[in-house]
């Protein structure tokens, strides 16, 4: 099995890891870098639980080859602890009651961060479209949309 050494920044920290070529960024983040906030939900890009930012752009990390992170900036939910917009979104999720089992929440927060960066004042409909790639089984999405809307108004 071919291993590849890659250098990238993980939440701002220069990082070097050696990974099998076919490993996903999700596996690398969880099992090699040890950050478990990014979740495995389906492995097919259908649920959004593994959403991360690569050079500021949101992606399903389960579909991303880890080797493609070489030379780039990876941001995970843990990285939002140092980001004012990220923290505002997380607080809005708590305050709006947007968290139930919480398994989809990190991915939702990451996608919300992307959405608000591209469109700081989205309509409710735009928020719903913005998170169409993130599945939630608990909340019925209403309070997640409330949370993102509230975060956009602060």
């Amino acid at each position: 099995m071919s291993q590849q050494t890659i250098d990238f920044t993980l939440n701002g920290v220069p990082t070097r890891v050696s990974v099998p070529v076919q490993m996903s960024a999700l596996e690398m983040i969880r099992n090699v870098a040890g950050l478990t906030g990014t979740k495995y939900g389906c492995g097919e890009g259908e649920c959004g639980a593994c959403t991360i930012l690569l050079d500021g752009v949101s992606l399903n990390s389960c579909l991303l080859f880890a080797v493609e992170c070489d030379g780039r900036a990876v941001t995970t939910i843990e990285g939002l602890a140092a980001d004012p917009v990220g923290l505002r979104i997380e607080k809005a999720f708590v305050d709006a009651g947007a968290v139930q089992c919480g398994f989809c929440t990190p991915g939702m927060v990451m996608q919300a961060k992307q959405l608000l960066e591209q469109n700081p004042h989205p309509s409710r409909e735009e928020i719903q479209r913005g998170i169409e790639g993130n599945l939630c089984r608990c909340t019925g999405y209403v309070k997640i949309v409330d949370a993102i809307e509230a975060a956009s108004k602060e």
Partner: peptide, 21 residues
């Protein structure tokens, strides 16, 4: 009242460790 969940901040920050984690 509208009471926020006790476990929500950990979950929203990705710090909660589920069985997978």
């Amino acid at each position: 009242k509208r009471i926020t969940k006790l476990d929500a901040p950990e979950k929203a920050g990705g710090k909660t460790r589920y069985i997978q984690d």
